[in-house]
């Protein structure tokens, strides 16, 4: 399948006169295949929105190459823009216009049939409120309008930056159905989100970014599989020994996350190693099971953003990946 979106070695440094430079993207790579729903994940401030803005020509990168629908952007953006629908980070609309006016002005500007306005308003559930001023809309209603504006063009590629932000549970589920339906009809969807349960349900593949670099990518199943078996949960006969046992394992080179009644141990070759190491010190394992990985725990591990008791993690504390092969990173 041809790549609909390809980014390699993307770099962006924000410069401001007062606060100096901030490197938001540091040799970032990403590939999205045609017809898939692709999750774009990363901690706050890792560069997701920056990537999408760069891709859409809103900001100028400092290096790297990008293609959209097979054409180099930003050079070819005027040609492909018609086929790319996007919302970027809780989009704002002119508050005094109604939803219908907002969309019909966009339709006019983009040469889209006015008929579409009614269709997308229906599709995102704003039909009966379309005549009201956008300024009076709730967060989720604005978000629905944003999705409507992205769908208006009937794009081949749909780029959504946190589309579920502010949606109610029903709305999130509708969004899920909508996206699966769009993908089934051949549209490619790129979706940045923090709701990983949702991503795991909707997405075919993911890219995980941390500190401006890609730390993992591939089909969801592969990403999970690569990290399944990487950890085991350990219960002891006596729960009082947990912290002592944790020290033993750490000393032996494992990575340990204590939980209420068990230890989550990773960085071990074979589960048996845990049993043996503990038995040597006189701790007896009562239960040993592979960690059932979900996307959330893989994400936390890969980005190293799992909360640690007693520590307030700061936004830029996350994993720094070695630069990818062929990347432009240091």
């Amino acid at each position: 399948m041809p790549a609909v979106l390809e980014i390699s070695g993307l770099e962006k440094t924000y410069r401001s006169r007062r606060r100096g430079a901030r490197k938001a993207l540091d040799g970032f790579d990403m590939v999205v295949e045609s017809g898939e729903v692709h999750g774009f994940l990363g901690p706050n401030g890792s560069g997701k929105t920056t990537t999408l803005r760069t891709l859409l020509g809103l900001i100028t990168p400092n290096g790297g190459t990008m293609t959209l629908l097979g054409q180099r952007v930003p050079a070819a953006l005027p040609h492909v823009a018609r086929r790319v629908g996007a919302i970027v980070e809780s989009p704002q609309f002119f508050p005094n216009f109604s939803a219908r006016d907002t969309l019909s002005l966009l339709a006019d500007a983009g040469g889209v049939n006015k008929q579409r306005v009614t269709e997308v308003l229906e599709q995102v559930g704003l039909r009966d409120r379309a005549k009201e001023r956008v300024g009076t809309y709730s967060l989720g209603m604005k978000q629905r309008l944003a999705v409507a504006s992205a769908l208006l063009k009937q794009p081949d590629l749909l780029i959504l930056d946190e589309p579920a932000n502010g949606l109610d549970p029903g709305g999130i589920r509708e969004m899920r159905t909508l996206m699966r339906g769009l993908a089934a009809s051949g549209m490619t969807v790129v979706l940045s989100s923090h709701i990983l349960g949702e991503v795991q349900l909707i997405c075919d593949s993911v890219t995980i970014i941390s500190r401006g670099r890609r730390v993992a990518y591939g089909p969801v199943a592969d990403v999970l599989a690569q990290h399944a078996g990487a950890g085991v949960t350990v219960k002891l006969e006596s729960a009082d020994d947990l912290s002592a046992a944790a020290e033993v394992l750490i000393a032996a080179g494992a990575r340990v996350t204590p939980e209420a009644d068990r230890l989550v141990v990773s960085n071990v070759e074979k589960p048996a190693w845990v049993t043996r190491t503990l038995a040597e010190k006189g701790y007896f394992v009562s239960e040993l099971a592979p960690v059932k990985v979900d996307l959330e725990s893989v994400f936390l591990e890969l980005t190293q953003t799992a909360p640690v008791a007693g520590q307030a993690r700061q936004v830029d504390d996350s994993a720094v990946a070695a630069p990818a092969q062929g990347g432009w990173g240091v």
Binding site: L56, P74, L77, P78, P91, F94, A109, G110, K153
Partner: peptide, 18 residues
């Protein structure tokens, strides 16, 4: 001014990138 300030300009540029 209101277009810039409200984000309307950004939306428009997503449709007309020139």
């Amino acid at each position: 001014g209101a277009e810039w300030n409200s984000g309307g300009m950004m939306n428009l540029l997503l449709w007309r990138p020139r």
